[in-house]
């Protein structure tokens, strides 16, 4: 098991290098260092000297990938790419183009993201399982088919509409909660109610439908028939047999998402003004802040890999027959 984890983590290194190379290439095809300097320095009176200065100060005055002027290994190491990406592996994200320390920003912005994403995730799973169990009780009836139709209809509404509708009704028309914002002094929860509610409601369609499929699959298994033949009550079948067995696919399906909770949700955060990592990313895209984009891609990739690893581990935990090798 331990050896397996170590091996998986080592396997992550080439992936992260690949990720970095890709983002780097993409970004610098779009933006030359000169562009970055110009957009960071503002609109008026940008002189070539100022640009050269900025590049030197921020370490963009070297060749991108290959330094033909340097000798030996320096050809590869004395470049922007090497400089900027080696540090990432030591989790030193450096400074954003506007001069802020990215590691500090990420560390502070992670918590608001979690504050929204975690409740949404947990409440979402709870609500979805409840709804799905209720529907499964009526499997094969007209009620079941109707519920599935409703799920599909809920799935078919764009996320944007859930957010806009939620803000418009709950916050603007009914004035029940603040429409957006976030601060840690005082009642944080009142800012979280609406985003969490929107997140949960938007997720019901897809989530409940998925859980329903899982439960139904289990309900058609032989052991359920046996249990019923033994005279177990419907409820005990549902809770003693179906739920625990369906938990395995549920667990392995959701575990992969847990690390990505740290990244937050791009849309929810920017609509609700939550200063998390999601809105951080969106701002970075809009202001073309390469340092942040690169760091966030890096973090995102690590979290994804961790998610995969956790999934594998959760398999062994949930189902002892599975061995990792």
């Amino acid at each position: 098991m331990f050896a397996y984890i170590v091996r998986r983590l080592l396997y992550a290194i080439p992936i992260l290098i690949g990720v970095n190379l890709l983002t780097f290439t993409l970004f610098f095809v779009v933006n030359s260092p000169d562009d970055m300097a110009a957009s960071q320095l503002g609109d008026k009176y940008v002189t070539p000297e100022a640009i050269a200065n900025w590049k030197q100060k921020n370490g963009y005055d070297k060749p991108l990938f290959l330094n033909s002027q340097a000798a030996g290994v320096g050809q590869v190491t004395d470049t922007i790419f090497f400089d900027k990406s080696v540090r990432l592996f030591a989790f030193d994200f450096g400074r954003s183009e506007s001069g802020r320390d990215i590691t500090t920003d990420v560390a502070t912005r992670m918590w608001p993201s979690l504050a929204v994403a975690l409740p949404t995730f947990l409440v979402g799973i709870g609500v979805n399982i409840c709804v799905a169990l209720m529907v499964v009780m009526f499997r094969g009836t007209r009620l079941d088919r109707g519920a599935v139709f409703v799920f599909v209809a809920l799935m078919s509404i764009s996320y944007l509409f859930y957010i806009i509708g939620g803000q418009f009704l709950v916050a603007k028309t009914w004035r029940l909660v603040p429409i957006s914002g976030f601060h840690t002094e005082g009642q944080v929860w009142k800012f979280l109610v609406l985003p969490v509610l929107v997140g949960v409601v938007a997720g019901i369609g897809a989530g409940a439908r998925w859980y329903r499929t899982l439960f139904l699959e289990e309900a058609n298994q032989d052991y359920v028939r046996t249990a019923r033949a033994k005279g177990c009550s419907e409820l005990s079948i549902l809770f003693r047999h179906i739920l625990p067995n369906a938990l395995i696919p549920i667990l392995t399906g959701v575990v992969v998402l847990i690390p990505s909770l740290f990244m937050g949700s791009l849309l929810i955060e920017s609509f609700f003004g939550i200063p998390g990592l999601g809105s951080y990313m969106l701002d970075a895209i809009n202001s073309q802040d390469f340092a942040i984009v690169r760091s966030m891609v890096f973090i995102g990739s690590i979290l994804y890999i961790v998610g995969l690893l956790l999934t594998d581990i959760s398999y062994t935990w949930a189902d002892p027959r599975v061995r990792l090798s």
Binding site: I164, Q167, F168, A171, K172, P178, I179, S180, G181, S270, F271, F272, G273, P275, S279
Partner: peptide, 13 residues
């Protein structure tokens, strides 16, 4: 001075 990005929120507040 609070940061406000979305127009609907800004206007509503």
């Amino acid at each position: 001075f609070r940061l406000e990005k979305e127009v609907l929120s800004l206007w509503t507040k």
